[in-house]
Design a protein around this nucleic acid. Structure first.
Length: 481
DNA sequence: GCATGATCATGC
DNA sequence: GCATGATCATGC
């Protein structure tokens, strides 16, 4: 009882010019919900949780817990201290066994990106990085992560991680370039072509009920562009969470960073691989003294990994930047005419999961909206049937590019394929998925150890493992060779 | 032991 | 030679 009185007495008692005081005050909510600590004092500030305002927990925390009016203006929430408050949902996940973690270990993952501020295209058109309104408002964040639960009164949601946070010096360089990529599109009258996948950590995500409704004027072009907001990408937020937790545990973070003083990581990747353009696989093997038998089906990919271990000291996907920006590496082999020999496969479909998912939160949308790919493209000089028939002298590196799926393809063809597949899973039609000849950008096909390699379905029986494939023809288009 | 990345094999 | 089903070495 006494503690409860003390808690209430302390309400609003923070020094608004001192960010550490604000953080300390915020941390009273650690492992608690608003309802756990507040009873009497808060009532006079209680706000209505209407359906329209979605009852966002962030709004409630701002008004009831910190006692200030909601501010979506250009200055920070705690303007005297220069601190912007962000209340963000997280979920518990099993960490992927691919890293060095023990299988099944529990960790936190960001449920969504952190939206920083709406982009005012006209204002951005006038800004440069040195005097930008985004970092002025959001350069110093106070992050309050809570455990997300569906259909729960927001006042009962428990906070798990609370901390001041700002990007490290190294990250800020990448964020600066991301900002410049976005602002350059605006300055060139291409705000309507912006995609969240254009950038690494800082994204420009759509904001508004629907992209159509939210369209607004942009400078330097008469074409209307969907409203967008600066945000930290979900994969980057995962890293923020990890960074804060490691700091709290007193562990020094083991970093594996590819960027250096002069070059950002993708520039280093380009520099190394562009120097190898036109070189054959056998040239590359000799150059880096690679010793590997040509047995595995993913031989070329293993060579690429060998090169990276030699040049960078590690495989690319093991570097922090690749994790933060959510970049996956794919090698592609082209026939002499530029057509990829194969379509590109992805992880197998979890039939039960997919039957219950909505598009907005689907694995496949997440995969292609919030993810970048590094395509390392080889081309054969001569016609061939099987790759193993080719001489390594005849396969050479022809292009290296970072790729992400254009929004129009994601919301168009990809959505159609996803919806068709989901409906057929629900109907139990496992032999009737979209084929490559259906001329979408993607199709469904088996991907398993063998035909007896099965996985459980929502109907309770076992079905062959299958996965999404990007059509070879679509990849050719995207390569623009 | 199994997911992953990628290619092979076969029928038409 | 395409379409699609089937499969394998690797590495975590």
């Amino acid at each position: 009882m006494r503690e409860e009185v003390d808690e209430n007495k302390m309400c609003y008692e923070y020094d608004k010019v001192d960010k550490y005081s604000i953080e300390r005050y915020a941390k009273r909510l650690l492992d608690r919900s608003l309802n756990d600590i507040t009873n009497d004092v808060i009532y006079e500030h209680t706000i209505n949780i209407s359906e329209k305002s979605k009852g966002r927990l962030g709004n409630i925390v701002e008004q009831e817990y910190f006692g200030y009016k909601i501010n979506s203006k250009k200055e920070a929430d705690f303007k005297e201290a220069g601190v912007e408050l962000k209340v963000c949902p997280i979920k518990q996940i099993k960490e992927k066994p691919s890293s060095n973690t023990i299988r099944g270990k529990l960790g936190y993952s960001a449920k969504e990106r952190i939206v920083l501020s709406i982009i005012d295209y006209n204002q951005l058109n006038e800004e440069n990085w040195e005097h930008n309104s985004l970092m002025k408002k959001c350069g110093q964040l106070l992050l309050m992560f809570y455990m997300y639960k569906k259909d729960i009164n927001p006042r009962d949601l428990k906070f798990k991680i609370i901390s001041l946070w700002k990007p490290s010096h190294e990250d800020l360089k990448i964020i600066e370039r991301d900002w410049n990529i976005i602002s350059q599109k605006v300055k060139h009258g291409k705000a309507h072509e912006i995609s969240e996948g254009d950038t690494m950590y800082l994204g420009a995500c759509t904001k508004g009920s629907t992209a159509e409704k939210s369209k607004r004027e942009q400078p330097n072009s008469h074409i209307k562009a969907p409203q967008r907001a600066f945000s930290y990408k979900r994969s980057y937020v995962d890293y923020i969470i990890e960074e804060i937790l490691q700091k709290q545990r007193g562990k020094r973070k083991i970093t594996s960073v590819l960027s250096d003083q002069n070059l950002i990581f993708d520039e280093k990747v380009y520099r190394v691989f562009n120097s190898l353009l036109g070189k054959s696989v056998s040239d590359i093997i000799v150059k880096y003294s690679i010793n590997r038998e040509r047995k595995a089906k993913n031989f070329i990919r293993l060579i690429v990994d060998d090169v990276c271990k030699h040049v960078f000291g590690n495989k690319l996907e093991n570097f922090d930047e690749f994790k933060k920006a959510n970049i996956e590496i794919k090698t592609i082999l082209l026939r002499p005419d530029g057509m990829p020999k194969e379509s590109m496969s992805f992880e197998q479909i979890d039939y039960c999961e997919m039957a219950n998912q909505e598009w907005e939160h689907s694995v496949i949308r997440e995969r292609f909206e919030n993810k970048k790919y590094l395509w390392i493209v080889f081309r054969s000089k001569v016609k061939f049937k099987n790759q193993k028939d080719l001489s390594l002298d005849d396969i050479s590196l022809c292009k290296v590019m970072f790729w992400n799926m254009p929004i129009s393809d994601l919301n168009g063809s990809m959505y159609r394929v996803w919806l068709d597949t989901k409906n057929k899973i629900i109907d139990g039609k496992y032999d009737d998925f979209i084929k490559i000849s259906d001329n979408e950008i993607s199709h469904i096909r088996p991907k398993a150890k063998d035909s007896k390699d099965l996985v459980i379905s929502p109907q309770g029986d076992f079905q062959p493992k299958k996965s999404f494939w990007l059509n070879a023809r679509y990849i050719k288009e995207q390569l623009k060779i």
